[in-house]
């Protein structure tokens, strides 16, 4: 399990904890002092990364995450920030 922390410029703190197995993300947990509405959508974010090979295709992840959160309000961080912190946790 690898963990990293990332301060969003002008925003909140993000932490990603990822478990990588056989070159893929087995699971990811995103924590921090951001806001997400509805709060339950955190599971959508974390499920999105499961099974993805590393290194992450950042552009594809941001697009997929933005689509997944199209009905949500993410405050204090962006979808790019979330992909960045997960990538950092994967050692990129």
């Amino acid at each position: 399990m690898a963990e990293t922390i990332y301060k969003v410029h002008g925003g909140k703190m993000l932490r990603a904890k990822v478990c990588v197995e056989d070159g893929k993300i087995k699971d990811a947990m995103i924590t921090g002092d951001f806001f997400l509405h509805p709060e339950e959508d955190i599971s959508k974010i974390e499920k999105l990364f499961a099974g993805r090979p590393i290194p992450l295709d950042s552009k594809a992840c941001v697009e997929a995450l933005s689509l997944e959160l199209s009905e949500s309000q993410l405050i204090g961080a962006s979808t790019q920030d979330i992909v960045t912190v997960v990538s950092m946790a994967c050692g990129e």
Partner: peptide, 9 residues
């Protein structure tokens, strides 16, 4: 602590 925060952190 906030809903998304890690307890041990």
């Amino acid at each position: 602590i906030g809903y998304f925060q890690g307890y041990e952190n």
